[in-house]
Amino acid sequence: MNPPTPSPVQLAAIKTAVFLLCLLPAVLLARGWFANALGANPVEAVQHATGSWALNMLLISLAVTPLRRLTGLHWLIRLRRMLGLFAFAWACAHLLNWIWLDLWFDWRAIGADILDRPYVSVGFAAFVLMLPLAATSTQSAMRRLGGRRWQALHRSAYVVAILGVAHFWWLVKADVLEPLLYALALAALLGARMWQRELERRRQLAAPPPLPGTPPKGRVIRIVPK
């Protein structure tokens, strides 16, 4: 039995709902800022909230593929670009807060921090790696690059996530519990991906060779070399 696929109208409704849901933490943060309700050090509160949400959205977007394989809900893939772009938007806010409200465009201090402080260097590297992903997130970019190359490029989202977790790990003073939880979640995502790939490899090995002359059904991702 195939799980139900939403109609175009339903999908549009789902997308809108997910969009609004993703927007909610930003609305709450903005409200806290303007209501002066972010505590004694609001700039730091924004730095932490934007960083956490950048990483959350990144991991959520990386969870789409394993989840889709697990549940058979293939339409979930239609949400992935939006989730990834939310991660990017949070990272932009994170960087902007740091450059503007924290360091007030003190470019010398900004440059020195990027070069001297490993946790900033790593965060910055993560951000730079996000740029090509955001730039190639459109349908036309995907077409221009071709599916395979696009996929290879976008696999670097995992690298961004690894750098993001390393950044978090490096910046805590003593208690690594929170970055540890992120690291475990990321490891689970990577593990799921590898496991599903292994299953697909075995399936392809076990499958009888296609009859000559019959076109393959659906999209075949070759893992086993010919």
Binding site: A40, N41, V43, E44, D102, L103, W104, D106, A109, A112, D113, D116, R117, P118, Y119, L171, K173
Partner: peptide
Amino acid sequence: VSHPRWNQATERRIGEQRR
């Protein structure tokens, strides 16, 4: 003398806008 995590040249006085 900088700390590996924090640049110690400036500080944020709690309640103030700029460092």
